[in-house]
Amino acid sequence: MGEMYTVKQGDFLSKIAAKFGFANAMTIWDDPQNAKLKKERKNPNVLFPGDVLFIPDKKQKQESGPTEQRIRFELKGSKVMLRLVLEDAFNKPIANAPCELAVEGETHKLVSDGKGKIEKEIPKSAEKATLVIKDPKTPVNDQIIPILIGHLNPVDKLSGQKARLNNLGYFAGPLDKEDENLFRSAVEEFQCEHMGKAAVDGKCGPKTQAKLLEVHGC
């Protein structure tokens, strides 16, 4: 029979699947009743508050085994991969930098790779994290960087555009406040640096959205 679920801010498919007891999130995403949403949202882990997702009934799976013998079952998929790319104000990677990632009460010591990327498996239930770069050579050494997990909205939404621009260092303003001049200025700067001067119009249309996805990574 299943049920309908309305997406809330901070939700993403893997988190929703874990909430309903699904080890494989694609079981939900690939259900025929989610075909329309699947077509609209290309990335199942970048949903928008108000999206409606169909949650199918879970199917029982039977396994056979010898009697009078202990059988171990392992539940997979309790974690999700967090990926971050660290760059300086000139869009240069902060490479090989020691970092401390704090999430759900645990602190993990990591080192960015040659392209400034760090990866860490975290619980699907995680909603917030903080990152501290421990490299005296960088201007952001010892600064606490807050991370909201699952709060990135689709790129065709204004909040999603502003979040990506902010993440890339083009200050488009707070997500909960509108400042058309600030947003337009950020878009123009992004277009100039990544699309060429001829493309600068200050509007975040389909071509700019596509480039924003490409540069941001998601």
Rank of each mutant, 00 (worst) to 15 (best):
K162P: 06
K134G: 00
S159L: 05
E178T: 15
G173V: 02
P146T: 01
A172N: 07
T107P: 03
L165P: 14
G169R: 13
N167F: 02
A186I: 01
F183N: 10
E189R: 15
R164M: 09
I145K: 06
I145H: 05
E106Q: 12
E121Q: 15
N166V: 06
A172R: 14
D176Q: 07
V140E: 00
I118K: 05
A163W: 06
I145T: 00
F183T: 08
I149L: 12
P123M: 13
E180F: 11
E121S: 14
K115Q: 13
G114Y: 12
P174S: 00
K120F: 07
S159D: 11
Q191P: 13
L101R: 02
F183I: 13
G173P: 09
V155W: 01
A129C: 08
S125Y: 14
K120R: 14
L165A: 05
F171A: 02
G160V: 05
E178L: 06
K117H: 02
L131T: 15
E104M: 06
G116S: 07
Q161I: 15
I147V: 14
Q143T: 09
K128R: 12
T130S: 15
K162R: 11
E178S: 11
E106M: 13
A186E: 01
I145G: 01
E119T: 12
N181D: 03
K162A: 03
N167A: 08
K117T: 06
Y170D: 00
N153Y: 01
P154Y: 01
I144E: 12
L148R: 14
S159T: 15
K128N: 11
S185V: 07
Q191T: 12
G173D: 05
V111L: 15
V187N: 03
P139M: 10
Y170T: 00
Y170K: 02
V132G: 10
N167C: 11
R184D: 02
L168F: 12
T130G: 10
E106W: 09
A126R: 03
T138N: 04
S159G: 09
T107Y: 03
P136T: 10
P136N: 12
P136D: 04
D156H: 02
E180Y: 07
E104A: 06
K120V: 01
L165S: 10
L158P: 15
L110R: 08
V187F: 03
E180N: 08
Q161C: 12
K162Y: 08
D156C: 11
A102W: 11
V111S: 14
E178P: 07
Q161K: 14
P174H: 05
H108N: 13
L165E: 06
A126E: 05
I147M: 10
V132I: 14
A129D: 11
A163D: 05
P123Y: 04
T107F: 00
A102G: 00
I122E: 04
I118S: 06
A163R: 11
R164I: 08
N153V: 01
A172Y: 08
A129P: 12
K162M: 10
N166H: 05
A163N: 07
Q161M: 13
E127C: 10
P146Q: 08
